[in-house]
């Protein structure tokens, strides 16, 4: 019986909130020799969403892997969210997913129907993306985990990294924020069914449309907003690009119910990890505490954050409108003159 097992109860942390902190990760990788190759267009060095390898003048492959513990109780939903999230890294590089491999950890006691439903969720999203699952690997584990390794294609000259933003670029985001807070509150039974259904809808919305719109315009940098939160990923983008970013806090769309929950301290541990990592590079200005908290909130399967040429910003916004969950023009990139990389105003 699918409904008898509460998947999130089997997991210590939910979804992308389970990610090892950015600062910790850098320390863990320290001193490990990195080999390179002239055809490797994007590798370790820039903390990007996926690696990109040039096969020919016309073709580069994009590779990424993403998996996490349950963020939803329903296994089919969890499968969909994990797949949407894994596919997102390919979209963030401007690519199209082609092949995917399942990565699955399941407890022995998990009912066969539930495992089947989980996998079906993954397959459905991968097919929706126009890609195919060609196999995978499963192991027994007390805590369930699911995700995929995804391979995509991109033209080698149209790869979008998180380090190409230029001063003057307009920053656009495609999904509202607050997912981490909602899923934390849901664990305590403090998130309404209606809002949780909306959150699931957001987490299972592929970033395909956002990518398809974006590649028609002069987008200089892109990343997907996931475990490190909007500000964590923004710091990486700004620092990698050598620009500063100024955000207008009033332009962000937060999921309504997440605001009250953030004020009441129903914030995930990952939010505090993100804050600890990024805070010293962020000038929070007059932003209220709850606004800052939601800007650090880890997003599972969040939207794309794009830095677009200012001349193309209006046209891209118009095309995204109605095509993505929430097209928001949130700020702009500036010359970096020292100090904080991100300024909130």
């Amino acid at each position: 019986m699918e409904n008898e097992i509460k998947l999130t109860k089997l997991a210590k942390c939910a979804g992308c909130g389970a990610k090892v902190g950015a600062g910790v990760l850098a320390q863990l990788l320290e001193g490990i020799k990195v080999h390179t190759d002239p055809n490797l267009l994007v590798g370790f060095d820039k903390s990007d969403d996926a690696s990109v390898y040039k096969v020919s003048e016309e073709l580069a492959i994009v590779q990424t892997v993403d998996f996490f513990p349950p963020i939803a109780d329903d296994p089919y939903t969890f499968g969909q969210i994990a797949a949407t999230n894994a596919l997102s890294d390919v979209y963030a590089m401007g690519g199209e997913p082609k092949l995917a491999l399942n990565l699955m950890c399941v407890p022995e006691k998990m009912p066969r129907e539930a495992v089947h439903a989980l996998l079906r969720g993954g397959y459905d999203k991968v097919y929706e993306a126009g890609a195919i699952i060609t196999g995978g690997h499963s192991i027994l584990d007390e805590e369930p985990k699911y995700g995929l390794a995804v391979t995509g294609f991109v033209h080698p000259e149209r790869v979008l990294t998180n380090s190409g933003a230029r001063p003057g670029d307009v920053l656009i985001l495609t999904k509202p924020l607050g997912i981490g807070t909602l899923t934390t509150a849901a664990k305590a039974g403090l998130c309404s069914d209606e809002t949780m259904a909306y959150a699931v809808q957001l987490m299972t919305t592929l970033n395909k449309n956002a990518r398809d719109c974006m590649v028609k315009y002069r987008v200089h940098a892109c990343t997907d907003v996931t475990g490190f939160g909007l500000l964590g990923h923004s710091v990486e983008l700004a620092q990698g690009s050598g620009v500063a970013i100024e955000y207008e806090v009033s332009r962000f769309r937060f999921i309504e119910e997440a605001i009250g929950l953030a004020k009441e301290g129903l914030l995930p541990e990952g939010m505090y990890r993100n804050r600890a990592f990024a805070e010293c590079r962020v000038d929070a200005g007059e932003a209220e505490l709850w606004q800052q908290d939601l800007l650090y909130d880890p997003q599972t399967s969040g939207g794309l954050l794009m830095a677009v040429d200012p001349e193309d910003a209006d046209a891209l916004m118009a095309e995204l409108e109605g095509c993505v969950p929430a097209a928001q023009r949130i700020g702009r990139a500036l010359e970096y003159g020292g100090g904080a990389y991100i300024r909130l105003r």
């Binding site: 953030a262 004020k263 009441e264 301290g265 914030l267 505490l289």
Partner: peptide, 14 residues
Amino acid sequence: NQCSVENVTRYGKS
């Protein structure tokens, strides 16, 4: 734990 300190503080103030 620190996370609970922060969250309970926010709740109390709210």
